[in-house]
Simulated scan of single mutants.
Amino acid sequence: MATVLPLNAQLTAFQVFLPVQGKEYEFGLHNVPSPEEAGKVSLRNAKLDCKLELRMLLEGFEHVLQERMKQSLDVATFVEEFKDILDRIVQAQPQVVLPPASFYARIVAEIEAIGWEHVAWISPQLTTLHLCFFDVAGREHIVHVNLPPDYPEKQPLATADLPIAVELRWGPDGTMNAILSQFQLAAERFQDFWANMEDIDKHVWVMEPEHPSRANCFRRIALGGHCSLSITVNPLSPRSIPEYRFFGSDALISPIRKRMDSCMSHWYVMDRLLRINLEDVLELTFPCPQDTDQDDISANCIICYNYRLPHGTGDWVSKEGLVPDRVCDNGSCGRPFHSACLVEWLRAIPTTRQSFDVLFGSCPCCSHPIMVKCTSG
C-alpha cells in the first residue's frame, strides 16, 4: 500500500512512497488543491517531483500522467492512478539476465591477455567493450563488442568502421584476442582504399558526406559552377573506375560527362591515386576549399537555403533527407533546387503553365525557362 506523507500544514504538498513490483518508488506532489477545494478542483495544476530513476521510467508517458491528474479530484485517487500506470510500465520493462560469476573472471583474464592498452572503454557490467588497435599506417580503429551472458558459448556481436563488414569466425575456444586479430587482419585489406579516400578528402572539396567515416565508400565532389560528381569506390579495388554520377546544369555537365565516357583508356589503375586518374580523365583539377569561392560550390537549394529536406523520397535520400535534385539549365546560372521547393515556387507564380504533371515556368534566380515534374495537379 502506498504511503502518503503531508509536507506542510496546509496539505498542499505530499511525499509519496509507492511499492510496485517489489520495489519502492518515491515522488513529491506539490501545488495540490487545499482541503476546502477537495472534490471540486482537479490536480491538473499539481507538480510532480520525481527522482532520476523514476523520471527515466516515465519518459514518454508524461501526457498520460497529465491526463490522469486532470481527472483526479484528490491525492488518493491520483496515487492509485499513478500506481496503475507505473505497474504497467514496470511489467513491460525487459528482464535483465546477469551473467554468472565465471563470466566476469573470464573477461578480466582475456583483457589481461590482450593488454589493457587495447581497451578504449568498458561498461560497468563488462558486457560491452570498445577494443582499439592501430593499423600499419597509424590509424586508430575501434571495435565495438557486445558480449552475451553465455559468452563464449554464444558468439558475441562485433562491429567496426570498415567498408565491408567482418564475418566473425567463432568457435568454442573463441576469445577477445581472436576478435581483435580478425579485425586487424580485415583492416589490412583496406589500406589502399583509405589512402585514396584520405587523399580525396585532403585535396578536393567534398560536399558529402560531411563527416565521412572509414566505412564510407561514397563521396560527392564539387566541380564548380554548382556542378558535382558523386563516386562510389570499390574498397577492394579503390584505384579502378568507380561508379559515378554527375549533377548540375546540362550545359556544363554534358562536355564533362562525354570526356569521362570517352577517355577511359587513360585510366591507369595500379600506379596512380584515384583522384589523379579522375582529374586526368576529366581534364580538370578539382576545386579545393582553400582557393574556391563558396558561392560557386554551394549546393544549397536557392529557394529554401537548405541542403537537405527531411523525410524525402527518391534516389538521393539519406537519413537526413532529400538533397537538391533539380538545377537551372542556364549554364551561367546552374542553381540547384529541391524539386518539392521548385514545385511550390512555380505554383505560386501566375505565369506558370502546367501540362499533365509537368510545371513550366522561370528560374527563381535568373528567369531562364525551367520545368519540373509534380506529383499532383
Rank of each mutant, 00 (worst) to 15 (best):
residue 326 R to G: 06
residue 293 D to V: 02
residue 288 C to T: 14
residue 314 G to D: 13
residue 305 Y to P: 03
residue 324 P to G: 03
residue 302 I to H: 15
residue 311 H to I: 03
residue 316 W to Y: 12
residue 290 Q to F: 09
residue 309 L to H: 06
residue 330 N to T: 05
residue 317 V to G: 04
residue 294 Q to K: 02
residue 300 N to G: 00
residue 323 V to H: 04
residue 317 V to E: 07
residue 300 N to E: 14
residue 306 N to F: 07
residue 321 G to L: 12
residue 313 T to D: 07
residue 303 I to H: 11
residue 311 H to D: 13
residue 306 N to E: 05
residue 288 C to V: 01
residue 315 D to E: 09
residue 305 Y to N: 11
residue 301 C to K: 04
residue 304 C to Q: 12
residue 307 Y to C: 12
residue 327 V to N: 04
residue 300 N to H: 07
residue 319 K to E: 05
residue 291 D to K: 14
residue 298 S to V: 10
residue 293 D to F: 04
residue 330 N to D: 03
residue 290 Q to D: 06
residue 318 S to W: 13
residue 305 Y to F: 14
residue 309 L to C: 01
residue 301 C to F: 05
residue 320 E to D: 15
residue 299 A to V: 01
residue 301 C to E: 02
residue 328 C to A: 04
residue 291 D to Y: 13
residue 325 D to S: 09
residue 322 L to G: 08
residue 289 P to A: 13
residue 305 Y to K: 05
residue 321 G to M: 12
residue 326 R to F: 04
residue 307 Y to F: 15
residue 296 D to A: 13
residue 303 I to Q: 02
residue 312 G to S: 08
residue 307 Y to W: 15
residue 288 C to G: 13
residue 291 D to G: 10
residue 327 V to H: 10
residue 312 G to Q: 10
residue 301 C to S: 03
residue 296 D to L: 03
residue 302 I to L: 11
residue 301 C to D: 04
residue 291 D to C: 13
residue 309 L to K: 05
residue 308 R to D: 10
residue 304 C to V: 09
residue 306 N to P: 01
residue 309 L to W: 01
residue 301 C to G: 06
residue 292 T to P: 12
residue 315 D to G: 00
residue 324 P to H: 01
residue 310 P to S: 08
residue 317 V to D: 07
residue 324 P to K: 03
residue 308 R to A: 15
residue 318 S to F: 03
residue 325 D to W: 00
residue 297 I to S: 11
residue 303 I to R: 00
residue 295 D to S: 13
residue 323 V to Q: 11
residue 299 A to K: 14
residue 312 G to H: 11
residue 309 L to P: 02
residue 320 E to R: 15
residue 299 A to I: 10
residue 288 C to L: 12
residue 315 D to V: 03
residue 306 N to W: 00
residue 320 E to Q: 09
residue 312 G to N: 07
residue 329 D to H: 09
residue 315 D to R: 03
residue 302 I to E: 08
residue 320 E to T: 12
residue 314 G to Y: 10
residue 324 P to S: 00
residue 319 K to I: 01
residue 296 D to I: 02
residue 289 P to W: 09
residue 311 H to W: 02
residue 316 W to H: 00
residue 303 I to W: 00
residue 295 D to K: 01
residue 324 P to Q: 00
residue 298 S to I: 02
residue 288 C to D: 15
residue 330 N to Y: 10
residue 295 D to P: 11
residue 325 D to L: 04
residue 303 I to N: 08
residue 307 Y to R: 12
residue 315 D to H: 13
residue 290 Q to V: 11
residue 306 N to V: 09
residue 292 T to N: 13
residue 318 S to G: 15
residue 304 C to A: 06
residue 329 D to T: 10
residue 321 G to I: 07
